[in-house]
Amino acid sequence: MDIFGIPIQALMGQLLIGLINGSFYAILSLGLAIIFGLLNIINFSHGALYMMGAFVAWIGLTYLGINYWVALVAVPVVVGLFGMIIERTMLKHLYRLDHLYGLLLTFGLALIIEGLFRYRFGISGESYPVPELLSGGFNLGFMFLPKYRAWVIAVSLVVCFGSWYIIERTKLGSYLRAGTENPQLLQAFGINVPLMITLTYGFGVALAAFAGVLAAPVFQVNPVMGSNLIIVVFAVVVIGGMGSIMGSIVTGLGLGLIEGLTRVFYPEASAVVIFVIMGIVLLLRPAGLFGRER
């Protein structure tokens, strides 16, 4: 059976791959959305922190013998702490200023971090092996699905919806949301708002690092892996609606699928299709698909 001249098997394979890429978009854009929603910072260093996650995992494996499973937990903590230091020492001075200042600072940080890694490791990067437990794959009939890719989809869905649940459906989440609406009032209730903001930024950064560790066995670990991805992820956030948690998850997965389809029907356009959609969405719904007009 063919759809527009493409065998249905091939189409299903491509859709599945789209979903895998969508998983990365979703985790990264989720981190961005949390940081923007709660801190009002457009975190341009997100891509660099994702790259850092992958590199810290590689360094851990190569020099310290830390395996993938430990790295999956430890690396986000380490990079998250690094993020909190950034927040405490630099970002916290910018909350009252225009978005542009936060954007410029984080963009500068991204360039510095990338530059340091490029200086130390060169541009071709390093290879991170697929963990033994997840090597090999399943034959689905229409395609060969590497076990590792299946794991990426599963774990990112859990992490994304888990984060959404915490923020939207728990007491802790309600503090976070209240903190963005009216920090003074929340402080008056005895909640340490600055600490909460620091932890939130750390969590957003940890998500980026987590995506980095997930990506390490799939992509070559190199200093520009983040900057290749970050622009797409920003487009995802804009389409989903800046700051919308569910919007970023759904849009991330959805755009991965659309990109996958484009690669079947017109591969040359697969790099721009997301931006075309962004343009259309901005024209029709400037606040994004899931965003609220302020």
Partner: peptide, 20 residues
């Protein structure tokens, strides 16, 4: 043949076409 945007990072779709 299939043409991918430059630079790219995920080649699995193109590889799948090649496989097919």
């Amino acid at each position: 043949s299939v043409r991918h945007p430059f630079p790219g990072s995920d080649f699995s779709s193109f590889l799948l076409s090649a496989q097919a």
